[in-house]
């Protein structure tokens, strides 16, 4: 297990280098000179030249890249052009917001998706199977923005069960500690606030979790069906064990690897690509942060945002790889 973990970690190095190369080249691939972009159309020649020098833009690319990487290693993500504050200082609340939303969306997707997939496979061709797979098909086909708007209309506006936007009651904001609001409200010992924060999470989590839920349900079902036909399941049956043990011990564990792969990929997608949902629900997450940076042409923020999302994606896949080994002792690469 230790050797496997070390090997996986070592394999991260080329991936990380590739990632930083791509984000590094973004600045140099945009049309025009970065200094020109920063200072605007009307800047004078000398002002541009001075800025280029202070930013190190006149150095060779290789040297610039090593500066970039050594800055990154020291936790320096650059400075936002718009707010003039270091990105590493202002980005955390956005990451925390996205983490929290992704966590609850995936929780919803995994609990419903995996169980629906298991029951569908168990009772193959039953009414439940047909209904669940129909819902899953609709789930993958629904555009997220439409689902989000419908949720707001029905559950926020018409029924008033849940708030329609934001992370908490904005008239009465709490003092953030970790910026994970559920955790913060518990740290404050204010459980009525925990309840309010959770209520804010319901609609965006469902909107964001529906597609992963549908994909997970379909993957679980097909994987389970394949495993249920295998010889070792027949052996367990021949031992005289009950359906529950067969399905939740032997079949589920064997069916889990493809499901886990999908969960990992979907989590990565949610962490980076929730711009639509975050915009509709006014959720101050990474997606919105980058989206706003793009509209302001705030290149350092775009660069760092992409880098962070890519980094998270890689980390999630690393965790998934380590879990593989935990599930299947035969895996060794």
């Amino acid at each position: 297990m230790f050797a496997y973990t070390m090997r996986r970690l070592f394999m991260l190095v080329p991936v990380l280098i590739g990632m930083t190369l791509i984000t590094f080249s973004i600045v140099h691939l945009i049309p025009g000179n970065p200094a020109q972009v920063i200072l605007g159309e009307t800047a004078s020649e000398t002002a541009i030249k001075n800025l280029e020098e202070s930013m190190g833009l006149n150095e060779p690319y290789a040297l610039q890249y090593t500066y970039y990487v050594s800055d990154l290693l020291q936790g320096d993500l650059g400075t936002s052009l718009k707010t003039k504050t270091p990105i590493s200082e202002e980005i955390w609340p956005y990451i925390a917001a996205t983490f929290e939303l992704t966590f609850f969306a995936m929780l919803f997707a995994i609990i419903i998706g995996v169980n629906a997939g298991i029951i569908s496979a168990w009772k193959q061709n039953s009414w439940f199977d047909f209904l669940a797979m129909l819902v899953a098909l609709i789930g993958v086909s629904i555009p997220v923005f439409w689902l989000a708007l419908m949720e707001q209309w029905i559950f926020a506006q018409e029924l008033s069960w849940f708030p329609s936007s934001g992370r908490q009651d904005n008239r009465d904001p709490m003092e953030p500690i970790t910026y994970f609001f559920v955790l913060d409200s518990i740290l404050h010992g204010d459980f009525s606030r925990t309840f309010t924060v959770l209520k804010h999470l319901v609609l965006p989590s469902i909107a964001l979790g529906t597609i992963p839920m549908a994909i997970i349900a379909r993957m679980t079902r097909s994987s389970m069906l394949e495993v249920m036909r295998s010889d070792y399941i027949r052996t367990v049956q021949a031992k005289g064990s009950g359906q529950f043990l067969i399905i939740y011990k032997h079949a589920l564990k064997n069916a889990l690897i493809p499901v886990l792969t999908v969960i990992g990929l979907q989590t990565g997608v949610l962490l980076g690509g929730a711009i639509l949902t975050e915009t509709i629900f006014s959720w101050p997450g990474v997606g919105r942060y980058i989206y706003e940076a793009i509209t302001y042409r705030d290149y350092p923020v775009i660069q760092s945002g992409i880098l962070i999302i890519a980094f998270l994606f890689v980390i999630i896949n690393l965790v998934v790889d380590l879990l593989y080994k935990f599930i299947d002792p035969r895996i060794n690469y």
């Binding site: 010889d231 027949r234 367990v236 002792p329």
Partner: peptide
């Protein structure tokens, strides 16, 4: 009755045991 009074072994020993559980686990289970 299965496994207790009438039990069965199969043709393919390579695939008849669950690959993800130890021998001990599968024996104890029976």
């Amino acid at each position: 009755i299965r496994g207790n009074e009438i039990s069965m072994i199969f043709q393919e020993p390579m695939t008849s045991l669950d690959p993800l559980f130890t021998i001990g686990n599968q024996l104890r289970e029976a």
